[in-house]
Amino acid sequence: MTSIVDIGKRIELVPIDPHFKDITIALYRQELDSRAVFKVHTYSRIEGSPKRIQEVINIMQTLGGMQKTSDGLLFFPCGDRHEAACRRVFLEACKLTSDTPVEPRPLNILDKKSKLTISVDSLGSGTYRVKSNGEGRSAERRVSAIAAGLIKLGEMEYAEDNSTDSIRFTCGQSHDALVGLLLVRAPNVRVILREQEAGTARGVLSAPSQQT
Rank of each mutant, 00 (worst) to 15 (best):
S3P: 04
I4D: 10
I4N: 13
G8M: 07
R10I: 10
L13D: 00
L13S: 09
P15I: 02
P15G: 05
I16A: 11
I16Y: 08
F20Q: 02
F20P: 02
K21C: 06
K21H: 12
D22K: 10
I23Y: 02
T24I: 03
D33Y: 07
V37N: 01
K39A: 04
V40L: 03
V40T: 11
Y43D: 15
Y43R: 15
Y43C: 12
I46F: 07
K51V: 15
R52F: 02
I53F: 01
Q54W: 05
N58P: 00
T62S: 06
T62R: 10
G65V: 05
G65E: 06
Q67E: 15
T69L: 01
G72C: 08
L73T: 01
P77H: 06
H82Y: 04
A84N: 15
A84G: 11
A84L: 09
A85N: 03
A85E: 02
L91M: 13
E92Q: 13
A93S: 14
K95W: 00
S98N: 12
P101W: 02
P104E: 07
R105I: 00
R105T: 03
P106W: 11
L107W: 09
I109H: 06
L110G: 02
L110T: 12
K112G: 00
K113H: 10
S114C: 07
I118R: 04
S119Q: 09
V120W: 02
S122V: 05
L123Y: 06
G126K: 02
R129I: 12
K131N: 11
N133E: 12
E135K: 14
R137S: 14
A139M: 08
S144K: 13
S144W: 03
I146A: 02
I146C: 01
I146N: 03
I151Q: 01
I151A: 06
K152M: 13
L153Y: 01
L153F: 04
G154N: 07
G154M: 08
G154H: 06
E157A: 14
A159N: 11
A159M: 09
D161L: 09
N162H: 10
I167M: 07
T170G: 07
C171A: 06
S174Y: 00
S174I: 01
H175L: 11
D176E: 15
A177N: 15
A177K: 08
L182D: 03
L182P: 00
L183A: 09
V191S: 13
V191P: 00
E197R: 14
A198K: 14
G203M: 06
V204K: 13
A207G: 10
A207Q: 13
P208N: 05
S209A: 15
Q210W: 05
T212I: 11
